[in-house]
């Protein structure tokens, strides 16, 4: 098997495992108050982290700040104006990023 197919096979195995492990370990049960207080805030914390990493992160780890920062900021400006304009914001982010890369 080539390296590429070995990578796909092994990554498939670990991905299926990490997606399934949490739900299997935590069965059908009521959350206590403290636990639910934390779980409730996981989504905003994780989303914010994903935004940061995908805006300033390099393709193989590390930090690589570039035009994406201006693109995502422009998306933020669109959303400050109209919160429900998701696709507009995404389009503006790509356009601003592309424009800056073309100019620099």
């Amino acid at each position: 098997m080539s390296d590429v197919w070995l990578t796909i096979a092994l990554l498939l195995a670990t991905t299926v495992f990490v997606r399934g492990a949490g739900p299997v370990a935590m069965g059908d049960r009521e959350l206590g108050r403290r636990t639910s207080g934390v779980v409730e805030l996981l989504a905003p914390a994780l989303l914010a982290a994903l935004i940061v990493v995908e805006t300033v992160g390099g393709s193989d780890g590390g930090i690589a700040p570039d035009a994406r920062i201006a693109g995502v900021a422009a998306a933020g400006a669109v959303l400050a104006w109209r919160r429900d304009r998701m696709l507009t914001a995404v389009f503006v982010a790509a356009a601003v990023t592309a424009l800056i890369r073309a100019l620099l």
Partner: peptide, 21 residues
Amino acid sequence: DRLGLDAIFPAFFLALLLSGE
């Protein structure tokens, strides 16, 4: 990257964060 496509996901997650969370 020339088309700025790598800015799409962070912008989308930002929209999700601001509109919902």
